[in-house]
Design a protein around this nucleic acid. Sequence first.
DNA 1: GAGCACTGC
Length: 698
Amino acid sequence: MAQFWKPGTEKPRLLEDEDGGVVFLSSSFSSSSSGYGFASIEKQRQRLPVYKYRTAILYLVESHATTIVVGETGSGKTTQIPQFLKEAGWADGGRVIACTQPRRLAVQAVASRVAEEMGVKLGEEVGYTIRFEDVSNSDLTRIKFLTDGVLLREMMDDPLLTKYSVIMVDEAHERSISTDILLGLLKKIQKRRPELRLVISSATIEAKSMSNFFLSSKRRRALEGDELLRPSLEPAILSVEGRGFNVQIHYVEDPVKDYVQAIVSTVLLIHDKEPPGDILVFLTGQDDIDAAIKLLTEEARGNGKTSSGLIILPLYSGLTRAEQDLVFSPTPKGKRKVVISTNIAETSLTLEGIVYVIDSGFSKQRFYNPITDIENLVVAPISKASAKQRAGRAGRIRPGKCYRLYSEEYYLNEMSVQGIPEIQRSNLVSCVIQLKALGIDNILGFDWPASPSPESMIRALEVLYSLGVIDDDAKLTSPVGFQVAEIPQEPMVAKMIISSNELGCLDEIITIASVLSVQSIWFSIRGAQKELDEAKLRFAAAEGDHVTFLNIYKGFLQSGKSSKWCHKNFINYHAMKKVMEIREQLKRIALRLGIVLKSCEADMQLVRKAIAAGFFANACRLEAYSHGGMYKTIRGSQEVYIHPSSVLFRVNPKCVIYHSLVSTDRQYMRNVISIEPSWLTEVAPHFYQQQRHNPNIH
DNA sequence: GAGCACTGC
């Protein structure tokens, strides 16, 4: 059993502020109440911690180009600041206040809350825009919530975002790729539009570096000049307290060898010794979660006293909606809920009723190797910022406790302060083309909040060049480059779509692109693997997985888009509905780009050629004398295998193209289609011509 | 015969 150190002097406050750079404004700025109706809602608003900073916030936004608001959970900053700004006149004269979020669900929730507080109909004065859903009105909407990805897309039509007077970037500390790109671009826009105001909402840990980012060296010089009429270019930092309760932290004395076992022991310890309250456990992935549940169920059963009253539930994104909803159902009296979760509960989902958190100290994180061009998912230690976020989940309803399965010494001395920003862990192909489309040609010189490695940027430029999307001067080509940038898909998929025009198979290709962009269209039930495989066989096409998707789509349409039909065939109905939405979007965009919606009927050779035109770099050749179905990539001689979930598994055609690689003990190709090697020089002569004499091709 | 942290356009 894990031994926890119970410090004699337990920490009075969980969220220790360890960077001294944050300015805390005193409440002398407190505002008087605004003469506003809806008494009860107005009272609720006034009770939010952010309310007493109303005047301070308005003053800072007025006088500073950028205001950084450090606010803990429950401060009310997201719902209140846009309203303060509106009340102060920032939306007068047809201007709009924007507030971005990293996630769609948050956009919808916050927008409807604010519309309710203001007593207006959602979609009119208060609106929102997310992919597939625009609940806003260009004449009426004054406060608009949107995902940061949508705002980036808006910049393609209006690079200076002229209709917005204030842009609030919420959850900036999460440092997603789109937030980072957005921050870099907003900084540029500010130089052209001094009247634009930015509000960056961030966690404590990031505030200082965010402030330094918006105060570049050029600006420091400007500050010394004569800039009286302009707002101060030095960002203001305002800290707003949250409404979380204290969380006591417990550490283990010695490093934990087996964290699944340690979790089980700790759950039973809490259940035995601590007062009622639900437990949230952070683990890395589905495998660990299933193992922990199995072990916990066994040990609880064999331990009479503690076995009663535990409701043990898994939580990860792969679960169906119904399974996920179980964790939100209220815990019956006398019971204790134990939710064993991935990182999904760290930011994306909030559980009420959690009093105890057990933190394994690990999560799965994506890493990208620009040399091999492979993205890997690996279990890695979390950062202090994550650890604090996880612990905070225990203090939402009353004071709670957090059990960290690592030592305090490790936390203090070895854990990194914050995680590596996503942009430094990812393939940058989509990101680079987006910047190019916005006229940023000097990618290497772009002022990022955190610079990606030059190797990753160069690799992205190489891929875009090979696709014919950028030219020798690294400028977007016309029309292909601009078309690819318009299509909201990875550039290789976008190129496949554009190539389908002259091949006359857009109809089929957008179906394939749509299926490839959802997680999985298969409905997997544990223990029903055989049935799933049989269902797959009913649709399997000799050409490969992409053509199999076409068969499934056809069947789905013939069934009248029936959910029953999906169920019978082990197909995920919700995924199919998403496929339909994406397909409609792609169809609309393709038609706008002048691509003709044509079907090639049964001629699958055209479909395969279109796939090759986008994914030629992923072509592989079967190794003639290998018995294990070993392939090598034609370009890099990398050893790869067909994934067992593919319809071409064990079929092993001579030459294939894959859509993506997953790396475990081997590199597995997922979603594979067979091609003729001669097509490669046909669709990508520039890429393969130097290798004309390479025996691998002929 | 194997495996899918989490978002987003």
